[in-house]
Write a protein that binds this DNA or RNA. Sequence first.
DNA 1: GTAGGGTTAG
Length: 508
Amino acid sequence: MQEAKLLHSRIIVSGLHQHDIYLRQIITALTTNPNPFSLLHARHLFDKIPQPSTYIYNTMFRAYASSPHPHQALALYHHMHLHGPLPDNYTFPFLLKACSSLGDLRTGEIVHGQAFKHGFGHDIFVQNSLINLYGSSCGVKMARRVFDEMGFRDVATWTSLVTCYANGRSIESARHVFDRMPKRSVVSYSAMITGYVRRNWFKDGVLLFRDMLVAKMEPNDSTIMSVLCACANLGDLNLGKWVHSYISERKKNQFDGRISTALIDMYFKCGSIKKALKVFEGAKEKHVGEWTAMLSGLAMHGLGTELIEAFEEMISSGVKPNGVTFVALFSGCTHSGLVNEGMRYFDRMTIDFGIEPTVVHFGCVVDLLGRAGFIEQAVSFIRDMPVEANAAIWGAILTSCRVYKNVEVGELAARWLISAEPWNGALYMVLLGLYRDAGRWDDVEKVKEEMKKVGCRKSPGCSSIEVNGICREFVVGDKSHPLTFEACLTLANVIAEFEDRRFFPNLI
DNA sequence: GTAGGGTTAG
């Protein structure tokens, strides 16, 4: 970018504005790691070239394909088609990528036809791009057909197919393809690990990460992000720390912003507040991502007051919050019982920061009111919302009704949820608990019968944490541990202590 | 002559 500006000023000074070679250099500089401004600038210069070469068209296609406006690539191709030079083998993969980003299968097929017409139908880059296009817009079947018909496949071909399966429903099929790859690259491992983590198969993701290290593959940023996400969800602090020191050595503590964010999140979720704070403090630049990870970490540990302080510090340091930041802020207020503060921030979100609330934010407010026991207010808030309430919102209402034993509203929420998800056994269990607490035994029996009729079961809740290097897993109702009795006794004492202090958590 | 496809938060 700096280089581009320098070149541009040199041209203006020396009056060489029409000089094709300089323009080409500037456009190339502006389109590598483009931002919206540099891309606009590049296009402005591109339009000044009387007869752009195929190369320079390709440069623009490449930049547009991975920009927020991929359709610009297609519009520009239309122009090239009418007035410009002939496309080459580089042209079509960029255009197909633009179609994938847009999920535009029809245009993708037209581009494919064009590639064929110009003699690049069997180009491996074109075919690989086609697999990605089909995989992202119409499922695995078509992608598989392209794959099967290819005479020659390389590692990217196989990786693309793995990604198709991983993004589709079948992570097992993705692994099946992965295991049959003649050769694997870092990206292949990364794609498979990311696939596992996206499907919440965290343990499999971690196992494959270990295989990857054994295979002497050096994980890249994408791999690291996925593994940190797995550590966070497994509570595997040991592996998380290992990954932290691994990347510290390699990158000399100069992390990508996204990696610092993932580290902060991992340490918070693994219960290590100190380490999370240390990473945050050590981050070279604190973008909205790092701040948001920080705020949601404080929220999940019930540190509402600290969270509000941190939020105000973020604002005074000139970082602009986004929609996700407010979700963290509201959730912190909710879990620390800071109802007035939360409501005030809800107003400020639109007035002071110009962020329009989405259904997620409305859900946060419902949760904020509900958990504090203001169930009637929460219900009237739902009534006044400009958007339709969703399952998350009725779920929040149901949870608070369970805690505050409000059968009337709880029944309403549960019925709404059950009609949306009749297979979800957990919903019936909550409704059953509500009736039981109210002593409505007839209704308890009715719910039990209903469950039998629908044939649903609640899958047991599960959690895990790493202690002294060993990952422990907990499943609801599991009494297999030899010290189960002692553990229950301790828990009973804790609950008794809570009750003595007039604090009634919902531990049922 | 120059370049390309597969992984990428909160």
